[in-house]
Design a protein around this nucleic acid. Structure first.
Lengths: 234, 234
DNA sequence: AAAGGTAAGCGTTTGTTTTACACTTGTAAA
DNA sequence: TTTACAAGTGTAAAACAAACGCTTACCTTT
């Protein structure tokens, strides 16, 4: 079916500015980090905010989110999860703007750290986050809630760690997400029983004299589990 | 802070038409039902679609969803859960329109049934759903997936049943959602152990000679559970 | 008035998962 | 070669889930 004259339909409706905002979490040693940058346009010029942009005419909101992440941080191939649409008519005093928020988790390796810093973005320890403009504080809180929920039924941890990681590292991450301590032995047992980790021959000795074996996430098995509808509750 | 001249900001950005669509599920005896209506504007005049509308200048998307549900069905005080934002530039050949979908569950009592039918909307058995316009088929599928997921960690069942209901009724509902049979005795045990049901003195004798006791959902206990972070996995 | 049929409701047994906690191992530094 | 310390293994008790047999209430049929 062809619609050569798009403009003829929906004349009575009033268009609205649409933006995307990305709440990006990273994990470093034992703390969650949040990616922020200094706003470059008025109003709120110079205020801290999460990374965002307006949605252009020929892109979906997820395309826009991918684009803006690339523009502001140089990062690519990052998985973005829709968080919520923020649409209060009064949320932005600059204009009627609705914003689709996305959230994402990334490996905090040296590369990611450096790329980001050369693009006017900055990592903050989640506990030292400055006050953000507009409703961005709420977005971050919502993203945290969603992160915790999501961590219960999806192997989210692996998105936040480097390709090779140790079990104690993985545990620290879950402890940071849930904000509570877990039993070392039970954690190991449970996570290994899922069959999602491939043990490597290498050890990481940065954490102890003995050193801890490195593991890799087995994405193939994970796909199988998802297909079979298996739960991933930690 | 005052911004008397809203128009001066964000000049470079291009506004987009924003719509809401509501995927409304009901439950009747033992089958899930879907609320649809015949579209009244071009393009796709006369096609079956879920209930929707454009978002107006001074309302949030959730306000718009509540409004449109009221306008099309006469129903009020319905809980609407955000589903997803559909933003593909090509999704509507009539214009660039993005749509925030909501989904909701309602009690299928006589009142709701009748109200709806006098407002040009119609209930379909989920299995007999006609093909829908645009991406509405996808929305319905996404809503179903979300319904199943949500049913795992939230006492969603109670939204779909009348105020007073029997345990066998509740079980039929869960069986319709999960599409599989559950053990009568274990279901009863588990659901009662949660402390979310208040037993009444009345019986409903429509289903059997013996009759089944009616129960009510205890919203207060549920709030407590949510606050304490307890899971509700069925 | 008694017998029969049927869904509602209750309890027990068995197997699995979670929790709690004690002990052993490997390695760099003293 | 001893020490310190995180990494890693094992096990018993408790809680939970799955499977399934039996009893109860009440209408219908005879």
């Amino acid at each position: 079916m062809e619609f050569p004259h798009k403009k003829q339909y929906y004349k009575q409706a009033k268009p609205i500015l649409v933006a995307v905002d990305c709440i990006i979490f990273g994990f470093n040693q034992s703390t969650l980090q949040l990616l922020l940058f200094k706003r470059k346009i008025a109003p709120f010029l110079g205020a801290w905010s999460v990374i965002g942009s307006f949605v252009q005419e020929q892109e979906s909101t997820s395309d826009a989110a991918i684009r803006v992440l690339q523009e502001h941080t140089g990062l690519e191939n990052i998985f973005l999860d829709p968080l919520a649409l923020y649409s209060d008519p009064e949320r932005d005093p600059g204009a009627r703007v609705i914003s689709q928020a996305y959230f994402s988790l990334i490996h905090l390796e040296d590369e990611a750290l450096n790329k980001v810093e050369t693009h006017q973005a900055r990592w903050f320890d989640l506990k030292d986050t400055p006050s953000l403009m507009l409703d961005h504080n709420i977005m971050v809180q919502d993203a945290l809630d969603k992160l915790r929920t999501k961590a219960r039924y999806s192997p989210i941890g692996f998105e936040l760690l480097p390709e090779k990681f140790t079990i104690p590292q993985l545990q620290l991450l879950y402890e940071a997400i849930y904000q509570k301590e877990l039993d070392r032995r039970n954690f190991r047992k449970k996570i290994l029983s899922m069959g999602l980790l491939d043990k490597l021959d290498e050890k990481d000795k940065s954490g102890s004299r003995k050193g801890a074996f490195l593991y890799q996430f087995n994405a193939e098995n994970y796909q199988k589990m998802v297909k079979e509808g298996v739960d991933f509750i930690l």
